[in-house]
C-alpha cells in the first residue's frame, strides 16, 4: 500500500496530540464565494492556524455587476442554505430571486421571498443548529447574519455592517469544526472588492 507522509502531530484544542493535516478549502466550493481559499491545519475535524486569500484578486473586475439589493440578498441566502443542508428553502429562495430578476411577476416573487425569509428567520431548528457559532464581538453570530440577509431579501432596511477583512474571518474560524467553518464563511458577505485583497502567496 502506498504510504502518504503525514505532517507531525501537534497539541489540539481538546488537549490531545493529533496529526496535523494541511488542507485547502476552495477556491470553488458550493455556497462560498468563488476564488476564496482557506488554508489551514486540520486536526481531527478542527481547523487551526487558518489563512484566507483570494485567487487572482488582481484579474477580477473591480465592480460587481449591479443587481437589486433584494436579489443579491436572496442569492446569498440560497447559498448559505445550500451549505446548511436545507434544499427546499434554498430552492424557494432561488425561485424568488429568479422571479425578481425577470420583473414580470414581481409581486408573486416578492410574496415568495417574504414567505421563504419568514420561514428561515423563524426556524427554531436552524436557530438551534446554527446558533452561537462564529460569534464576533458586536457583529453577532451566524444566525444573526442569516436573519440580516432575510431582512434584506424581504425588502426591509437593515443597518450596514462594516465589511470584514480576511484576517478577521480567519480569526473567526480558528478552532472551529470544519462544518462550522463552512457555515461561518458562507454567512459572511465576502468579495474581493470589499475585502483587503492579498495576492496569493506560495506555500512551501
Amino acid at each position: 500500500m502506498a504510504g502518504l507522509a503525514m505532517a507531525s502531530t501537534g497539541p489540539d484544542r481538546d488537549g490531545l496530540e493529533l496529526d496535523v493535516l494541511k488542507v485547502a478549502l476552495g477556491p470553488v466550493l458550493p455556497g462560498w464565494p468563488t476564488g476564496l481559499v482557506l488554508r489551514a491545519d486540520l486536526q481531527g475535524d478542527v481547523l487551526t492556524s487558518a489563512e484566507l486569500a483570494w485567487l487572482d484578486a488582481d484579474a477580477r473586475p473591480a465592480v460587481e455587476p449591479d443587481r437589486a439589493h433584494e436579489e443579491a440578498a436572496l442569492d446569498r441566502l440560497a447559498r448559505f442554505l445550500d451549505v446548511a443542508g436545507w434544499p427546499t428553502a434554498a430552492r424557494d429562495a432561488r425561485r424568488a430571486r429568479n422571479g425578481m430578476a425577470e420583473r414580470a411577476n414581481r409581486d408573486e416573487a416578492q410574496r415568495l421571498a417574504e414567505a421563504v425569509t419568514r420561514r428561515v428567520s423563524r426556524s427554531r431548528t436552524l436557530a438551534w443548529t446554527a446558533g452561537g457559532i462564529g460569534r464576533r464581538g458586536s457583529g453577532g453570530d451566524v444566525l444573526d447574519r442569516v436573519r440580516r440577509w432575510c431582512d434584506m431579501a424581504s425588502g426591509q432596511s437593515v443597518e450596514d455592517v462594516p465589511a470584514m477583512s480576511l484576517d478577521g474571518v480567519a480569526a473567526l474560524v480558528e478552532g472551529a469544526e470544519i462544518g462550522s467553518a463552512r457555515l461561518i464563511v458562507a454567512s459572511l458577505d465576502l468579495s474581493p472588492v470589499s475585502a483587503v485583497s492579498a495576492p496569493e502567496h506560495l506555500h512551501v
Binding site: 446548511a84 443542508g85 436545507w86 427546499t88
Partner: peptide, 11 residues
C-alpha cells in the same frame, strides 16, 4: 424531514 436544515452532530 425536509422541512428543516441538516442538524449539526454537535447538537
Amino acid at each position: 424531514g425536509r422541512r428543516m436544515p441538516v442538524l449539526r452532530p454537535d447538537r
